[in-house]
Design a protein around this nucleic acid. Structure first.
Lengths: 186, 186
DNA sequence: ACTTAACTTGAGGCATGCCTCAAGATGTGA
DNA sequence: TCACATCTTGAGGCATGCCTCAAGTTAAGT
């Protein structure tokens, strides 16, 4: 299901160069980086990029899920290593916001820009499911107010992601935002 | 200091049509609406728009401060009509977010896009000063935690403004955001 | 060595939106 | 009525960025 007919050697090399350039550029600038920049960076024509990957979404799917998956998995592991439910939830929110700030590409992925980048979607779903679980758990343990729902958590992440994309963001937005969770501990 | 030499009648009429079109368009679409749309809407060429107002900022300043000032003044009056400090602050945040959602132009103004639209800046300063006063007041009365600062309030407004500009915002972001203030009552 | 399918190329067409300026139109005072 | 300063016009140049496709190049099988 992966590659049907083997690529010609030059095509394979170009694809590799494009992947590398795309990865670097996406991570630095976000998933909306101009494709022409990536092609140039790879030392290849824009036409070749389209030949190989078909579309921006194709390129994204070819390059981002690995990295995103890895980073989110690390986060999940860190979170689950926390012994206390409250700390787990806290670590999740904190870690997600860290990622959203540090990694424009992952942030774009989380915010569901590029809904056609199919491979990414699953990964994000998975992470959001973890968030929901943590909320449920906190409710069960009675450490989180029942009116702080999973939707609140998603809203918080959406707000953070949106804020993280702004170049002229004010300094303390992150702390201000995290107050919303802090207000819900019982 | 307003108008030095009287405009020719046709010029005056066109300016009026442009103002009207600009007001309507800005309020509906925000301050970054294409100027060509405004010119067309006014039934006038894009060249005339530039002749009369020089730049987007010129047009903004000619049209928005009045409306923005009026709306913010209404808000200020409503806020100050509240007898209790806590309610005043609450009403301020709530009212500001209402405006930011309902009025893209005012939202742009508050977020300080278009820093060259000089006349707007003063009006916004004035409103932010009110916000700061309300925070101080709440601190003095001891109803607001000291670690919730005026900066937190501005961050909240910035977050709201940023969120309000997103077309695909999730539903409850506003409530989630207001939790951050709710968490700070003593 | 030759053939040919596979691959690459980049100019060029598309769209959006900015802003200008030479040419033409028109209000207005004499 | 007429001259002319004032105004209007919109095509066109700029920039960004998308995507395509006819022509040229090249890997690889015989």
């Amino acid at each position: 299901m992966t590659d049907r007919k083997p690529l010609r050697r030059d095509a394979r090399d170009n694809a590799a160069k494009l992947r590398a350039a795309a990865l670097e550029t996406f991570l630095a600038q976000g998933l909306d980086a101009p494709l022409e920049v990536i092609a140039k960076h790879a030392g290849v024509s824009i036409g070749t990029l389209y030949n190989r990957f078909g579309s921006r979404e194709g390129l994204i799917d070819a390059v981002i899920p690995d990295v995103a998956g890895a980073r989110l998995q690390v986060l999940a592991a860190d979170v689950l290593a926390e012994p206390v439910a409250k700390d787990r939830l806290q670590a999740f929110l904190h870690g997600m916001i860290d990622l959203q700030i540090a990694d424009p590409a992952l942030n774009d992925a989380i915010l569901r820009r590029y809904p056609d980048a199919v491979a990414l979607i699953g990964i994000c779903e998975h992470t959001m499911a973890l968030g929901r679980d943590l909320i449920d758990e906190a409710h069960r343990e009675g450490v989180l107010a029942p009116d702080f729902t999973a939707d609140d958590l998603l809203n918080l992440l959406w707000l953070a992601g949106t804020a993280a994309r702004e170049p002229h963001a004010p300094n303390g937005w992150r702390d201000t935002l995290e107050r919303a969770l802090a207000s819900a501990w019982t």
